[in-house]
């Protein structure tokens, strides 16, 4: 059992949980993830490590399906049955480079720990955060502290630049000699944004989030295609060379259980939270 020490909403449908999990917190590095199973019979869901502090680890997630809705109901003092991690390979951290960390939507969650790690290794770090609207631009303060420079963008222009993170990234690489770029966000955002660095030939990493079960290389549910080869995101990743990733395949596989997820959410609303279940499945 793992104790929840902090639980708070960060934005509409975006929640942060801080969990006491010493074996994860003491060993987790930027880029890695953990798997949570809330209760008996529960689903194992992978979440990126967002921050670590002593024996505590933070995760940030958006309520999408039944399991994330259940996690959003947790209060400080509640317990989570299983927390496994850290899983996956840590980010490959260079030194003495100029790096850009681009976060989109809930993908921003894993940016501060990465930016901080990059900076501690002697890199100059430029952060770019993009979201649909101002409220979803989470962790701005943490990123401001972690980065040498920070740029913001919103699709609707309610904060920062009116446009996409990709637009900002384009301007940054035109004005600064950039060595490495990390892009973390929804698959479609990573696909579009990584095109910006392809022609410039800048090494670019994306953190992939396919459907997983065990997270230890055992099931192959998370297989992704990178440079024409099948890789397991859980053990070979989750970070891969952005320019080799078959994003269309990733998105296709992410949608595989769409019907089941909708069914589970309806079931959750009908049996657990007592609401009408009319909330749209995201």
């Amino acid at each position: 059992m793992y104790r929840v020490v902090e639980a708070r909403p960060l934005a509409d449908r975006v929640h942060a949980l801080v969990i006491e999990a010493p074996h994860v917190a003491r060993n987790a590095k930027a880029g890695q993830f953990l798997i949570i199973r809330k209760e008996p019979g529960g689903e194992r869901i992978p979440l990126t490590v967002s921050a670590v502090d002593d024996d505590r680890v933070r995760v940030i997630f958006m309520t999408v399906g039944a399991t994330t809705h259940q996690l959003a109901e947790l209060q400080p003092g509640d317990t989570i049955l299983d927390v496994a991690g850290p899983l996956g390979r840590p980010s490959e951290i260079p030194s003495g480079e100029t790096c850009v960390v681009v976060g989109g939507g809930v993908g921003i969650a894993s940016c501060p720990i990465l930016a901080r790690t990059l900076r501690e290794a002697g890199n100059r770090v430029i952060g770019i955060l993009g979201a649909r609207t101002a409220e979803l631009l989470i962790l701005e303060d943490e990123m401001r502290t972690a980065c040498d420079e920070l740029y913001l963008a919103t699709d609707d222009g309610t904060k920062g630049r009116h446009g996409f993170a990709a637009d900002v990234l384009k301007e940054v690489i035109e004005s600064v000699q950039v060595d490495s770029v990390w892009i973390i966000g929804p698959a479609i955002m990573m696909k579009v944004t990584s095109e910006v660095t392809r022609t410039a030939g800048i090494r670019t990493w994306v953190s992939l989030n396919p459907i997983m079960v065990d997270g230890t290389g055992m099931c192959g549910s998370c297989r992704v295609i990178v440079n024409g080869e099948v890789r397991f995101a859980c053990v070979d990743g989750p970070e891969f060379d952005a320019h080799g990733v078959d994003f269309d395949h990733l998105m296709q596989r992410q949608r595989f259980y769409f019907e089941e997820e909708r069914h589970a959410l309806e079931h959750h609303h009908a049996t657990r939270c007592g609401c009408s279940g009319e909330e749209r499945h995201g």
Binding site: G41, V213, H249, R253, F256, E260, A264
Partner: peptide, 30 residues
């Protein structure tokens, strides 16, 4: 092989045996 609906036996069996997908949605794994 990367088409949706292609499972390794490990994945298929893990979903049902360990995660009890036969009891979905009472069990969370489909």
């Amino acid at each position: 092989e990367e088409t949706n609906g292609v499972y390794s036996a490990n994945e298929f069996l893990t979903r049902v045996n360990l995660m009890r997908a036969d009891c979905f949605p009472e069990a969370g794994t489909p």
